[in-house]
Nucleic acid binder design. Structure first.
Length: 467
RNA sequence: GGGCCUGUGGGCUAGCUUGGUAUACUUGUGGCUUUGGGAGCCAUUGACCCCGGUUCAAAUCCGGGCAGGCCCA
């Protein structure tokens, strides 16, 4: 039994520590320091997210961190949902503030009063914006790096549309973007419409994006919300249509966070450490020179040359020329999850090759120096594909159909019948300790009976223990 | 929300029951040496979470705080 499956909690913290992804010693619970390697990973993910959202017509913005209390409280469900987990600024200098300030837990209430100024005509729509900022939530539960923190590195897109249908199209576009991001990070996911009691406060509906972790629990990596006019009414976001009528906009949001980092650690890592998906690895390939006393200069020169060849082919390369034994470097870069290691020594130079080792499979081999860049690219693509397939298989194997409440498997995602009523839902959750993740966003082939009341249903529900 | 456990150099850790000079390994730094899977030798820096209490004396006992970890709802 591997450490990863056997004791996920210790394994996870060990990897975070040894790969040096963050420093947990900052003296505020749930607020960790992003150290260089961890931040490089986050930045790679952010860059790709930016690329995707820019390419689909979204504009990046950046709103203030603080929100006046009265502005925050306009949407009643929203304030109720966040009441117990926001940070308050109550003083400034020596004065107590007349209007307290909320430190944003998410930015709807910061943005929407401004949106009401920005949007006047149907020509201003759709309004598609996003920002990547830190948000704050006063978590009272146990915190864990990247997975449950109080200061959250957060992506959020916010859009306004002329109609519910238009907003619905935006949800569809978000799902396409999500698919590309998930491929890049090699993470499988499920899209489930959350229960009424678990949806985002103020939303018309919420689609949860979950992935499965090695301890059998699910981790929500993000969510997509359709707000209808639930926010545009209290925040008065209206436009004038072609006929001169004033109407409320329909809104959506898409949120993702640093949990993507937590997910990729958990899904891809092994007992040797992190395994980074090539798509977002800060270093896709590390080059390690193998010196001998008499060939040091020639080897150093050759490694610099191949590093340059790979770099100019657009590959993110680290040349590790530190004065250490090669074995020590292998262990270190394996821990950090670099997808491909390239070794170059006297023997390789003579043969006109470089030696490589794959992080995902451990496979070793050689690449002819003449076709270095295409050879490396081919390997990176193969690693990415292999990681994705492997993760998908594992995720699939964790979903289990159940048709009775007898002997529910504790470490599986349950697929079962639920009539959809709150009474049966709460009864199921409270009695068996699973959380209902929701019902599929994309309808599935299904016919069964509600596991509680026995009413026939044509769509399944999913439930699991969550991180 | 409820319960349990823990806090000692950068990391990991001994010592705590029974109060009295703080242990090992690792890392860091300087040097010599070495490089196809964690090399070796020498020298050296570096710690009892915070506040209060008990005591001649507290890492050790007591109370509170902060921080970390686990389990249950």
């Amino acid at each position: 039994m591997s450490m990863k499956e056997d004791n996920f909690a210790d394994w996870y913290l060990d990897i975070v520590e040894k790969a040096n992804l963050c420093d947990k010693r900052y003296p505020i619970k749930g607020m960790n320091v992003w150290t260089p390697y961890g931040w490089k990973i986050m930045r790679q993910i952010d860059s790709y997210i930016r690329e995707e959202f820019d390419a689909t017509g979204h504009d990046e913005v950046c709103f203030p961190l603080m929100i006046p209390e009265d502005q925050f409280a306009k949407e009643k469900d929203h304030i109720k949902g966040f009441d117990e987990e926001v940070y308050w600024v109550t003083h400034a200098g020596l004065n107590e503030l007349d209007v307290r300030l909320v430190v944003r837990p998410t930015s709807e209430t910061a943005m929407y009063p401004m949106f009401s100024l920005w949007v006047r005509s149907h020509q201003d729509l759709p309004l598609k914006t996003y920002q990547i900022v830190n948000t704050f939530r006063y978590e009272t539960k146990q915190t864990r790096p990247f997975i449950r923190v109080r200061e959250i590195h957060f992506f959020e897109s916010h859009t306004c549309h002329v109609s519910e249908e238009d907003a619905q199209c935006q949800v569809e576009e978000d799902i396409e973007i999500l698919e590309r991001i998930a491929r890049k990070i090699c993470l499988p996911y499920t899209l489930l419409i959350r229960t009424e009691w678990d949806k985002f406060p103020g939303a018309h509906y919420t689609v949860g994006i979950d992935t499965s972790m090695p301890n059998g629990r699910t981790l929500q990596m993000g969510s997509i919300h359709h707000y209808r006019t639930n926010f545009s009414i209290p925040y008065d976001i209206t436009y004038e249509d072609e006929n001169g009528e004033h109407k409320h906009v329909h809104q959506t949001t898409f949120g993702m966070s640093e949990r993507l980092v937590g997910a990729l650690i958990g899904v891809h890592g092994d007992d040797q450490g992190l395994v980074m998906p090539p798509g977002i690895a800060p270093f896709q390939c590390v080059i390690i020179p193998i010196f001998k006393k008499d060939n040091a200069a020639a080897v150093a020169e050759a490694t610099m040359r191949i590093a340059e060849v790979l770099r100019s082919a657009g590959i993110r390369v680290k040349l590790d020329d530190r004065d250490m034994r090669p074995g020590a470097k292998y262990y270190e870069w394996e821990m950090k999850g670099v997808p491909l290691r390239i070794e170059l020594g006297g023997r390789d130079i003579e043969n006109g090759v470089v030696s490589f080792a794959r992080r995902d499979t451990g496979e070793k081999g050689e690449i002819a120096i003449d076709s270095l860049a295409p050879g490396v690219q081919l390997l990176l693509d193969a690693i990415s594909e292999n990681m994705y397939q492997k993760a998908c298989e594992i995720q699939k194997s964790r979903i289990q159909d159940v048709d009775s409440v007898e002997n529910l498997p504790e470490d599986k995602i349950l697929r079962f019948g639920w009539c959809g009523c709150e009474e049966c839902g709460h009864k199921f959750e409270d009695t068996y300790g699973f959380k209902i993740l929701g019902r599929p966003y994309h309808p599935e082939q299904y016919s069964g009976k509600c596991i509680i009341c026995g009413k026939p249903v044509d769509q399944p529900a999913y439930a699991a223990h969550t991180m």
